[in-house]
Design a binder for these strands. Structure first.
Ligand SMILES: [Mn+2]
Ligand SMILES: [Mn+2]
Ligand SMILES: [Zn+2]
Ligand SMILES: [Zn+2]
Lengths: 142, 142
DNA sequence: TATTCCATGCAATGGAAGTGCATTATAAAG
DNA sequence: CTTTATAATGCACTTCCATTGCATGGAATA
């Protein structure tokens, strides 16, 4: 994704498009799967973890990325696909964690089924994470 | 729950019923909600965290408790209700995390809906966490 | 009783998230 | 262009939880 394109996206989200932020966005954009802060850190020769941390947090607050708790205890991040903003993250979709390659990915086309709850419970948010074998690992296992 | 009863349960699961283990089981058994290792630690005057940790891990391996990742980053544990064993945990149910009291609970009567997956994906396990307001907090907010 | 095995306790490590503060870059104002 | 204000960055440090190594104690078995 071109620098100019990323700059526009960040500007639209009220994020000042610094060099670092553009690079982080491009890293996220080119990744098939969700990435952790440590993954991100390892993608750069010399980048301070704190800066990456705060970059991701800014992205999260402005609706550019969403955090994924995949049950490993390590938070992963992925770009939002729907029209998220600082008010609300709107892309409720299924997340998949592969037990072989240990990659976590967004299945953005697979929405979360309606959940039935006991009386007097109010649902605000739903996290659905499926663990198993991803298509790539399944194919290569032939 | 009586000591004798707990002893029988632990024996059935091939766990030597030590004093500590019986106490931990009773704590879990008397709790309405899932508890973290730190919660457990605070429930005892002087208990070593490591012992509690290994007790919980033993329970988990033998199908006595199941771990719950509620998205807070702190693992919670609750007794298994179904017939779990060292082979497989069988109680797939909904978990609820209240954003007010911050308690996590098992909704054992609420099973997880059938999940549709893309071709070539294999599901082995499903974690469904609903976040919102629990019945207790909802009632007391009147 | 002697032996073996397992549970326990203490100390230490590791990983990840998060914060305080000084410095540097960017943008706006003069 | 220079000054000033604001925001981003980098470094050091802290905290919290999970996890392990090792020595010790206690129960079960021979
Ligand atoms: Mn996603
Ligand atoms: Mn449960
Ligand atoms: Zn995979
Ligand atoms: Zn509540």
């Amino acid at each position: 994704m071109s620098n100019k394109a990323v700059e526009n996206i960040l500007n639209d989200k009220n994020i000042r498009p610094t060099a670092m932020r553009i690079l982080v966005y491009q890293t996220l954009s080119s990744s098939e799967t969700a990435i952790s802060l440590t993954d991100l850190e390892n993608n750069f020769e010399s980048a301070d973890r704190t800066t990456l941390y705060r970059t991701i947090k800014t992205f999260e607050n402005q609706g550019v990325v969403h955090a994924i708790e995949d049950g490993t205890g390590i938070t992963k991040y992925a770009l939002c696909h729907a029209f998220c903003n600082e008010e609300k993250h709107k892309d409720l979709h299924l997340h998949f964690h592969c037990t072989i390659c240990e990659e976590t990915s967004c299945l953005t086309d697979y929405s979360i089924p309606k959940i039935r709850l006991p009386k007097d419970y109010i649902a605000q948010d739903v996290d659905l994470i499926v663990k198993g074998i991803c298509q790539r690992c399944n194919s290569s296992a032939l």
